[in-house]
């Protein structure tokens, strides 16, 4: 069985976002780039599955659609333990475009389980995984909090409103993962970092695909009203304000 893990390259989650070009783009100066947190966990789970020979996972490949600027993020994924990587050499500004590129990679190389995160922390799209599955005409399971392999078949737990469902789906499939998929992200050890340098990163040129969306301008969230402080000795006043001023209780 071959697993493909989709990784997106995002600003570190504590980054203060600033804009450039008349607010038409995000100012990348000084940004620390990381693997999207969900993708780090999904890579961890893929490697855990490979660790146990009973699961029959032969390889874990990572794929990224992005420019040469995201090479360090790909190397990091290799250092954590991915066997090899594929980079589709293009700007990744639209989910439809990105998913079309990854679908093409899967068509050529054939993977059994394709893992995506539920959301990238920059675009907040929750789109790429589902789109890949539709491009390929294969099943997808979303909001996956556990992925196992039993008797050669994937068994997934997905979150539904107010509960969980365990579902079985035949391969190939796209698993769109969220909280629970792995406990802690696996970190690169020194040996992994050394080995990553020699692991193959295959460069693929993009297919021509028209993007369907475009950001024209960014803005900051509207500032919130300043905090009104209530005396710690008299918390009952808070209840009054919530009832009569904010009118929320």
């Amino acid at each position: 069985m071959k697993i493909l893990v989709c990784i997106s390259n995002v600003p570190d989650t504590t980054t203060k976002i600033k804009f450039a070009e008349g607010n038409a783009s995000v100012d990348t100066a000084g940004i620390q780039w990381v693997i999207n947190p969900w993708d780090e966990l999904s890579l961890t789970r893929a490697l855990e599955l490979k660790d146990n020979p009973a699961n029959g996972v032969n390889s874990v490949t990572v794929v990224h659609v992005g420019t040469a600027a995201s090479e360090p993020t790909i190397r990091k994924a290799l250092a954590i333990g991915a066997d090899d990587a594929i980079r589709v050499n293009a700007d990744s500004s639209d989910a439809f475009f990105v998913a079309a590129q990854i679908a093409e990679v899967v068509r050529k190389e054939q993977f059994d389980i394709i893992m995506c995160g539920i959301e990238s922390s920059d675009y907040n799209g929750s789109l790429v995984g589902g789109m890949i599955s539709e491009f390929l005409g294969i099943p997808s399971v979303s909001a996956v909090s556990d992925l196992k392999i039993e008797n050669g078949q994937p068994l997934l737990t997905r979150e539904i409103d107010g509960g969980k469902e365990v579902v079985s789906v035949s391969v190939p499939l796209v698993a769109i993962v969220q909280k629970g998929i792995a406990k802690e992200p696996r970190i690169a050890a020194m040996r992994g970092i050394m080995m990553a340098r020699t692991k193959p990163v295959k460069l693929v040129e993009p297919m021509a695909v028209e993007s369907l969306t475009q950001v024209v301008v960014f803005e900051k969230p509207a500032p919130r009203a300043a905090c009104k402080y209530i005396d710690a000795e008299n918390p009952a006043q808070l209840i009054d304000l919530l009832q009569n001023e904010a009118k929320v209780i």
Binding site: A95, G125, L127
Partner: peptide, 23 residues
């Protein structure tokens, strides 16, 4: 934009070649 919606919307997008504004 709940769990079910996140599972359906992207597939619909590809079927209809329709761009998505999510959330």
């Amino acid at each position: 934009n709940n769990n079910a919606g996140k599972a359906i919307a992207p597939r619909l997008s590809v079927r209809l070649k329709a761009g998505v504004g999510s959330g």
